[in-house]
C-alpha cells in the first residue's frame, strides 16, 4: 500500500477540561473522498482546523505526504496550507470584498494587482460551480445562502488545491440545493483529482460524496469503512447515527 496523503496519529486536543479529540488515528489515501460523521460537538471541525494549523493540537502527529505538519510556523506553515482548500460552514466570504475578489483571494492574497485577469479567472471558476458571470460583481451579502455556498466552493477550488475540506457543506440548504452542492463537490473533487475530507451529519450528503466513511465518537475514530458498508456496519453507534434514532448507545444529552 502506498504512503497515504494524510496520516494522522494519536491526535489530541482539549479545551479546558473538555477532551475534544482523544487520540484520533486516520489515514486518507490519494484521490480518496472521506466523509467524517459524528454528532454535534464531537470535534469534527476541530479535526479539520488542526490539520489546517488553525488550532494547535496538544499531542499527536499529522503528516502530509510524509511531512510533519504539527509544529510548523510562519512561512513553512503558509506553504503547507497551499495544498489545502476549505469550504467553511457558513461560507465565511469576506463581506467587504466583491464576489470576484473573494474567489481569487488565494491567488492574490489580498493584493489588488491583475484586476482584469483575476476578474476573468473568477468568472471562469464561478461557471464551474454553475454561477453566471454577473454574480462576480455582486457583494456576498446580496447572495442567497445556496449561492454563497457555491461562491465559497469556487473560492476553495480557485487555486487548484490538492486537498479539499468541506465543513458541513449542506447545512442550512433545502434538500434540492443540498443535492446540487453535493453533486458539485463530487464533480470538482473528481475534476481536480483532489483528496477530500468532508464533515457532515447529513447522511444523504455523506452517501453522495463519500468513498469511505469514518465516524468520530468520544474523541476517537469509532468506526471506518467503505460507504457501501454504512448500512450493515454491525456497529450499534453507527446504526443509531445513520438511522437518526434517539435511543441507542449514543446518549442524546447535549454537553454544556
Amino acid at each position: 500500500m502506498s504512503e497515504p496523503r494524510l496520516r494522522i496519529r494519536g491526535l489530541k486536543k482539549a479545551f479546558g477540561a473538555k477532551q475534544v479529540l482523544d487520540g484520533i488515528d486516520l489515514d486518507v489515501a490519494v484521490g480518496e473522498s472521506l466523509v467524517v460523521i459524528g454528532g454535534s460537538g464531537t470535534g469534527k471541525s476541530v479535526l479539520l482546523k488542526c490539520i489546517l494549523g488553525i488550532i494547535r493540537p496538544d499531542e499527536g502527529s499529522i503528516r502530509l505526504d510524509g511531512q510533519e505538519l504539527v509544529g510548523l510556523r510562519g512561512r513553512a506553515l503558509a506553504d503547507a496550507r497551499a495544498h489545502f482548500g476549505m469550504l467553511f460552514q457558513g461560507g465565511a466570504l469576506f463581506d467587504s470584498l466583491p464576489v470576484w475578489r473573494n474567489v481569487t483571494f488565494a491567488l492574490t492574497q489580498g493584493k489588488l494587482g491583475g484586476g482584469q485577469q483575476m476578474h476573468a479567472l473568477a468568472v471562469e471558476v464561478l461557471a464551474k460551480v454553475g454561477l453566471e458571470p454577473r454574480v462576480a460583481d455582486l457583494r456576498p451579502s446580496e447572495l442567497s445562502g445556496g449561492m454563497q455556498k457555491r461562491v465559497a466552493l469556487a473560492r476553495a477550488i480557485a487555486a487548484g488545491p490538492e486537498i479539499l475540506f468541506f465543513d458541513e457543506p449542506t447545512t442550512g440548504l433545502d434538500p434540492i440545493r443540498a443535492d446540487t452542492i453535493n453533486a458539485l463537490i463530487r464533480q470538482q473533487v473528481t475534476a481536480l483529482g483532489a483528496t477530500a475530507i468532508t464533515i457532515t451529519h447529513d447522511m444523504a450528503s455523506a452517501r453522495h460524496i463519500a468513498d469511505r466513511v469514518a465516524m468520530i465518537h468520544a474523541g476517537r475514530i469509532h468506526w471506518e469503512g467503505p460507504v457501501s458498508a454504512l448500512d450493515d456496519s454491525g456497529d450499534p453507534h453507527v446504526d443509531q447515527f445513520v438511522h437518526g434514532r434517539a435511543e441507542g448507545p449514543i446518549s442524546a444529552t447535549v454537553a454544556p
Partner: peptide, 15 residues
C-alpha cells in the same frame, strides 16, 4: 469576522 470564520478562512487562503 471571527464569529463567521472569516479570519480562519483568510488564514487558509494564505493571507
Amino acid at each position: 469576522m471571527r464569529v463567521t470564520e472569516q479570519l480562519d478562512a483568510m488564514v487558509t487562503l494564505r493571507t
